[in-house]
Write a protein that binds this DNA or RNA. Structure first.
Lengths: 328, 328
DNA sequence: CCCAGTCTTTACAACGTTGGAACAACGATG
DNA sequence: CATCGTTGTTCCAACGTTGTAAAGACTGGG
């Protein structure tokens, strides 16, 4: 593999002149520039990023710490983050935590400043005192109030409220919620949105209609839905804290011959591609994932480059109404 | 951030002795070893991987080049590759090609030997002459015969044949195939399996029942299904070359009030988690993704470490029978 | 023809690490 | 007591790059 030295020898100039050409430094004689460019071409020179970054004190990587790639929301987000990172010549390193505290701690521990320039975190279990990070970081989604870290995400309270308002506007009175979680910040916010929507419509908040989910997988949604259908008076609508829970819930409803949306309206959250093609298709809160990815990466870039202050970016969302709440 | 020099000064030994302790070199006096370890502890030393790799000529990364993370199969696979790579202290760099030749070429071009030690490729459009790779690589899925690269994957012909045999065993006679593709190796192999299964049952191969798909997304499956349903004599079963196509096909069938599996049996390929919870759930060929990821990473590790020869690893698959072919 | 100023190139050092040679200490051997 | 081998440690150089400072080349004005 060719190095600057090889190119310099071939072009008959010093190593530094080649470096100057490679880095677009302006004061290089046209004649030399041409010779260097020819030599670059001839040798097929590619800079050694390790060496460059060692010298520059940068690594050229950012970490993306998320629960699991097999969760569509995170897979889609990861794809967008990778695309956004390319604009800043960053490569993305993905770490999976599987939603456990141990997993998140170990991912954070492996985040030496030598490995990455910055990190994007989607924590689910982390405590405040875990946030002693060696690099600039941005939190996705969760609004951890006391932590001095930037954050990007939607207004979860407003989004959940919009979802439940939609159900209420369709005439539903007994609306369940699936996905309550003791330690998850987003879960608390979405529950709060649910609560507010009920309150403003003067509907009662019924404990038995709020079902917790330890994980947010399809199986958890199905299990939660079964327990709701076992109630003396089952709900006529359900708001799920993510699309996977909703897909599971619709599956469980189908198994009991409960029709969606006639007997049960279902709203999800995340607007996975999967939800557009499910039968019935799923009404869902749609965060602008591309905006989230872009904002997170840009914010980190500003922070690394110019030491900008902490920020809290709110990205837009919309409600995609589909067959799971409205018949065609 | 502490360096070896800092630790050495604190412990009162040379830099190299500290390096020896860090790297588990055996001949260090117990006394010194203890002092060094204390100093390591006190400074919280973490090796600078960039510098170490510069010196060692390794990078500590492998690339995973795939079409798109938003495709569940690749998302799941990526998660498994990341997990498998951890065993060999490798970090995984994901590059998305979006299935285009340009995307694949640019991903490969960015794969300098300085960036990664090895690469795992899932190409869809690459030609033989593109495979001038600067690092050891392994191909997933596609069996490109003339290319001197290792390969890991299932027997696509046998797997497709098993899927279609299943449909035939249920009494279906007019079986369509969705996903033919002019340049995709796997597509050709799956089509061959389809052809063989028909032949061994003495069923005719009908051109109009083989529908191409340029991409393998849900929308493509839906479009293909619609064209099949428009035929004078629509099929009574369809074999889709991946689960997304199948999901799209089932959606399109539902929109025309064609019942699955009563009017139309559907088989997919990949066994995405999504397919377990769809309504109806989808019968699918299930490659052992964990085995694929593990085999690919292990193979690369052997090759990088000991320069092992090229290999062709065949991983197992099974057919998961669900509601889209058999009523409960 | 010299000097100041501008443009262009170069030598050197450094980033943090590790392989290898060299060196030091020490007990054992002849 | 000289020699040797073993064990433990240090010094030096190098990986490929870039910032700095200094040197060199050229221009135009006096």
């Amino acid at each position: 593999m060719a190095t600057l030295k090889d190119v310099a020898r071939l072009a008959g100039v010093s190593v530094k002149t080649v470096s100057n050409v490679v880095n677009g430094y302006s004061f290089v004689k046209p004649d030399n520039r041409r010779r260097v460019e020819e030599a670059l071409e001839a040798t097929g020179y590619r800079p050694n990023l390790g060496a460059r970054n060692l010298r520059r004190g940068r690594t050229g990587f950012i970490a993306l710490v998320l629960p699991e790639l097999s969760i569509p929301y995170f897979a889609e987000l990861a794809g967008l983050v990778i695309a956004a990172a390319q604009d800043h010549e960053w490569n993305v390193l993905i770490e999976q935590t599987f939603g456990t505290l141990a997993g998140e701690r170990s991912a954070l521990a492996s985040l030496g400043p030598h490995l990455v320039d910055a990190a994007i975190l989607s924590p689910e279990a982390l405590q405040v005192d875990d946030f002693q990070l060696p690099v600039p970081a941005v939190l996705l989604g969760e609004h951890a109030v006391d932590v001095p870290i930037s954050r990007v995400g939607i207004d979860n309270v407003a989004a959940a409220q919009a979802a439940v308002r939609h159900l209420i506007s369709l005439g539903h009175q007994r609306i369940a919620a699936i996905g309550a979680h003791p330690h998850r910040g987003t879960a608390a916010l979405r529950l709060e949105g649910y609560r507010r929507a009920l309150a403003e419509a003067s509907l009662p908040f019924v404990d038995e209609l709020v079902v917790p989910a330890l994980n947010y997988h399809r199986a958890d949604g199905a299990a939660a839905m079964r327990s709701l259908l076992d109630l003396r008076t089952p709900p006529d609508a359900v708001f799920c804290f993510n699309d996977l829970l909703a897909i599971g819930a619709m599956r469980a409803a189908g198994e009991r011959f409960v029709r969606v949306p006639q007997d049960l309206a279902v709203v999800g959250f995340d607007n996975n591609e999967e939800s557009v093609y499910s039968s019935p298709s799923l009404t869902s809160v749609a965060p602008d994932k591309a905006a989230i990815a872009q904002a997170a990466v840009d914010l980190l870039h500003r922070r690394v480059e110019s030491g900008d202050a902490l920020e809290n970016v709110e990205t837009p969302f919309s409600l995609q109404v589909r067959e799971s709440t409205v018949t065609r």
